[in-house]
């Protein structure tokens, strides 16, 4: 259900690859050239991670069933404070 709409990596994919890169760098296995290209890839991945974390739109919606049975989405507004008082003070 969370299948990405394009081939861009998800936050988790980018993060996991970044983690792998850092482990490889820290292992000292890579020579300078490889280290530098790994580091460069790491910078790109960290940017992807941050993009993913910022791309959602803070939307709150609700599903509404139309008369014809079709399901639509509408913005959902949380009720005013007095409802809360009603809930918390039931007597």
């Amino acid at each position: 259900m969370s299948a990405p709409k394009n081939n861009k990596p998800t936050y988790e994919e980018a993060y996991n690859r970044l983690e792998e890169i850092v482990r490889k760098l820290e292992s000292g296995e890579a020579g300078l050239d490889e280290s530098l290209s790994l580091f460069e890839e790491g910078i790109k991945l960290s940017r992807i991670c941050n993009e993913r974390l910022n791309e959602a739109e803070a939307r709150i919606e609700k599903l509404v069933r139309q008369a014809d049975g079709e399901i639509m989405r509408e913005p959902f507004v949380i009720e005013a404070e007095e409802d809360e008082c009603d809930d918390e003070l039931p007597f």
């Binding site: 993060y15 890169i21 850092v22 760098l25 820290e26 000292g28 280290s35 960290s46 991670c49």
Partner: peptide, 24 residues
């Protein structure tokens, strides 16, 4: 927590930078 997710990425990049700097 989004700030934690951001921080996790930052921490990894910090480790990468420290490692690269040390290697250089």
């Amino acid at each position: 927590r989004r700030d934690e997710l951001c921080q996790r990425v930052d921490i990894l990049m910090e480790r990468a930078e420290v490692t690269i700097a040390r290697q250089m």
